[in-house]
Design a protein around this nucleic acid. Structure first.
Lengths: 339, 339
DNA sequence: GTAAAAACAGAAAACGCTTTCAGTTAAAGG
DNA sequence: CCTTTAACTGAAAGCGTTTTCTGTTTTTAC
């Protein structure tokens, strides 16, 4: 039932070599023999064994994608696009969830040293770069949406600073003078650091007029957003505008505010990040920063294919995509946006 | 830099065989030599080449998961769980998006014949079973959330009929007498057929009192939901309750209804499916049927591991999980649910 | 008409492991 | 003390391809 290239060769009355040439479209095979081989392959239902191929060719046609978790809408969109582009190149994707655990990340990086994949797309960086770097000797690593100065590899990212800058400026232009920057920790993530930089730049341009600037750095999901709002209630001087590091957090803030009969955006303006479906659904819709995920995915796959082909990938190259502010109901009243 | 088992053997002054035994924890290796091998492996930074291993062992420790698309929250949750359970068994997951295309599905089924994976988890069935069945000769296929009578393989599913029955009964108990069953097409999907069966059963139990029953069978996402509501407006006799085949559709209906100043649930009750985050966010929250995805994922991985091990998998086994109705604001007024 | 190049074909080596087989040494049993 | 069994080790075969190398035939060029 399961046949090898040898069986095909025998049936066609030819050598393994010739059969292999037909499979791989090598030139220098006569039409006659090509036909005989194809006929033999069909009658036997022959399919080349990929393990043998991998061993001989030293190529797996597989790439691993490391993400914290796939249920995060940002990552599932990213994976969707990556898979489609990879598939165009006949490449397969192994999905690895690090769950924010450094040890899981290393476990999955092993896929590169054990030659189970030709390269790694790193969308999660839990370890210090010096820990990750040694894996480079086994194949290319392309960083995606993450960033580290030290890494001398291709990196594709969004211009987070600019995104945060534009969003913050928007809040300031609406007349807000007491701001809250609400995100995850900036210790672990360059993304937060870049956003904070953009946020502060906008603030500094308005420094004469700004009354107060506060920071919350442990907000990741909707429940955190609700908590942030409740903590606000206890404070003396509330901010009038919040820059949130994600639409979930923004949504949490808004929903909790509504529970307390606050009017958004009159009493509190909120801007989110990522333009998730969520930001269209709740009332008011959430002003948010849109990330062109598919563009990023396309670039990442292109880079990966190139690096696998050329086998030179220990050079820092940074590709940056611009973000766009989508102004909606959570910062400006009476938007004309009607679905 | 890249070393083979031969290099390790040489450095340790032992044979390949012994090194291999150490790697695979075979018994009958003296402590002394075990230490020497381990030392040699460490100094060389040796990692076994997986292609060679696969070829020799005839096992890939990889499984493919076929889904329509990963951005569908149901599937991303499923994949998240599958990946975690697979990882517990040291198995890797290749993600394949069929995008509802039969030819893509077949392309990915080839992963089994080419021995790139040990088995396939089929969460998408675009081809007739007779087309898929031949792939079984190359390895196990476990069906997940899909179902076909003809398939003599393990299948894990939810009791869709029961779920729809309970949801519909809930609507009827609330006094509704004009119902709309709103889902995707029942041509392609057994799921819809089962739900319809449950829906009709509930209706038949109230047949003396039910005034009208209608069906819409081309609703898949939020925009479809909005469209369904608008079409309702034109009709003479509106249904007062809708069973929707997904939370997105339900959300679309509710949002559009609110745009038209309708009161939910007073003027229209809506029940969704899948208990997505979405169903918690919009106002009112959506009564929905909760599917225990992680239980299903666990069973699927267990089955797959067993079938790979025993190599017998051409027997129909059906495992069914029960669904639970989560009653929220879109069917009952003034829920006490306060987050 | 001959030399050089291009087209075709197969034998054998190689890819890097695991497994079988056969053999040696150490421990246990009587 | 000899025999049997258990513990340990290595040589060589094998997994199923592709690639290199060598050789033959055909075509092209002058």
């Amino acid at each position: 039932m399961v046949s090898t290239i040898e069986d095909v060769a025998k049936l066609a009355g030819l050598s393994r070599t010739t059969v292999s040439r037909v499979i791989n479209n090598h030139p220098y095979v006569s039409e006659d023999k090509k036909k005989r081989v194809k006929f033999a392959m069909n009658t036997l239902g022959f399919v080349p064994n990929s393990a043998a191929r991998r061993l001989r060719k030293q190529r797996t046609e597989t790439v691993a994608v490391l993400v914290p978790r796939v249920t995060n809408p940002f990552f599932s969109r990213l994976i969707e696009s990556l898979e489609i582009f990879a598939s165009d190149h006949k490449y397969k994707l192994i999905i690895c969830q690090t769950r924010y655990l450094p040890e899981k990340e290393l476990e999955y990086l092993e896929l590169l040293s054990t030659k189970q994949v030709d390269g790694i797309i790193l969308c999660s960086l839990q370890n210090h770069w010096s820990i990750v770097e040694p894996y480079l000797q086994h194949g290319p690593i392309v960083m995606c949406n993450e960033y580290t100065d030290e890494a001398h590899i291709p990196m594709v990212k969004f211009n987070q600073a600019e995104g945060a800058y534009v969003a913050t400026k928007h809040l300031l232009e609406q007349g807000h003078r007491r701001l809250l920057f609400c995100s995850g920790s900036d210790k672990s993530s360059m993304i937060v650091q870049h956003r904070k930089k953009g946020f502060l730049q906008a603030v500094s341009e308005y420094k004469e007029q700004v009354d107060s600037v506060e920071f919350v750095e442990d907000a990741y999901d909707m429940e955190d957003g609700r908590r942030v709002f409740r903590e606000l209630l206890d404070a003396k001087e509330n901010p009038t505008a919040i820059f949130a590091g994600g639409d979930e957090v923004a949504a949490g803030i808004i929903l909790e505010a509504k529970c307390h009969q606050w009017n958004i955006p009159e009493q509190l303006a909120v801007v989110g990040f990522d333009n998730q479906l969520l930001s269209e659904i709740i009332e008011p819709t959430i002003t948010t920063v849109c990330q062109p995920v598919d563009q990023m995915a396309k670039k990442v796959i292109e880079l990966m294919m190139e690096k696998i082909r050329t086998k030179t990938y220990k050079k820092q190259e940074v590709y940056e995509f611009e973000l766009e502010l989508m102004i909606k109901g959570s910062t400006v009243k009476h938007t004309t946006v009607l679905a």
